[in-house]
Structure formats: C-alpha cells, structure tokens
C-alpha cells in the first residue's frame, strides 16, 4: 500500500508542477536527442547529480538490452553526462534511469532508436505503356488486313488487263 500511495502522490506532484511551471525543466534525467536513427549518438544527462559525489550511473533498458553507462563529463548546464553510441541497437524505445554518485535516484527518461533515412518503397514502375501498345497493335492489325484486301482485289484486275 505504501508504495502505491507514494507513486500516486509523486504523479500528482509532477502533474501540479507541470501545471504551475510550464516549460520548467522538471526532468532530472534528459536524453538528447530523444529520437536517433540507429547508429547515432545520444547524450544522457543527470541534471541534479553533484559531480563532487562521484560518477552518475545510467541504466539503459529496452528491447534486448540492459546496460549500465557511467558518466564521463560534467554537463554544461549542471549535472553529469555520458554519450551513448546506438550502433547495433535493436530499434525501439529505451528507458534511461540515472543514479547519482551518492546513490540517490536522479529520475528517468526515454529515447527512441529509429530506422535510418526514408523507405525504399518504389521500383520506378512499369516501363511499358500498355495503352499505347494495345492501340498500336490494333492499328497495325487493321493495316495488315487492309493490305491483304488490296492485294487480293488487285490480282484478278491485273490478270484481266
């Protein structure tokens, strides 16, 4: 019971915060960019971790993956950052949960690994115009029939002459 109560009040707190402070940076963990084509690099940042208390640890979980990434640099806007290279990642959405060097939780965020570029969804079509082919065939057929008629009519005429 205690857990669910805490969860509800936490959710309510976030809701109120969003309401009262639109645009304020509430997320303790950020991923930038939030969407990357597979193979791209994302920057994980735990904005509230104090570098003096040691490295932050980012736990990255998602399809076929559960990996820990240690922070490497102090973030420009405060907190600690790590770069994550997504080559070989299964496509999908991942959750990043950060823990500060002092063991405190620094929240979580998600990012999405997507296909690269557009879709190869066309072949250039059929390079034959069936309408023109049919019309041409009909005309040619008529011409041949006409030629046969002419040929037959002329032969008896020339025989008489």
């Amino acid at each position: 019971m205690k857990v669910s109560t805490a969860l509800c009040s936490a959710a309510l707190g976030v809701g109120l915060g969003t309401l009262l402070l639109p645009g304020a940076a509430l997320a303790d963990t950020t991923v930038s960019p939030a969407t990357t084509p597979v193979g791209g690099t994302v920057v994980l940042t735990a904005t509230t971790c104090n570098p003096k208390s040691g490295d932050a640890l980012f736990r990255v979980t998602g399809p076929n993956r559960d990996q820990n990434v240690r922070s490497t640099t102090a973030a420009a806007g405060g907190g600690l950052s790590a770069e994550l290279f997504t080559a070989g990642f299964t496509l999908g959405t991942y959750t990043v949960a950060a823990t500060c060097g002092d063991g405190s939780s620094a929240g979580s965020a998600t990012f999405t690994v997507t296909p690269i570029g557009g879709a190869p969804a066309g072949s250039g079509g059929d390079s034959r115009d069936t309408g023109a082919l049919a019309a041409g065939g009909t005309l040619l057929g008529t011409a041949l029939a006409g030629a046969v008629v002419l040929f037959r009519r002329r032969r008896p005429a020339s025989a008489v002459a």
């Binding site: 390079s127 034959r128 023109a132 019309a135 041409g136 005309l139 040619l140 011409a143």
Partner: peptide, 18 residues
C-alpha cells in the same frame, strides 16, 4: 498510314516513361 502509326505507337509503348 495505319501501319506506320501502329508501329509508332508500339515503339512509344515499349519505351514510355511509367
């Protein structure tokens, strides 16, 4: 004329842009 036009259309049909 029919013969030539017919041949022409067949040529166009085989090489037309889709």
């Amino acid at each position: 004329l029919l013969g030539v036009t017919g041949l022409g259309l067949i040529t166009v049909g085989l090489t037309a842009d889709p």
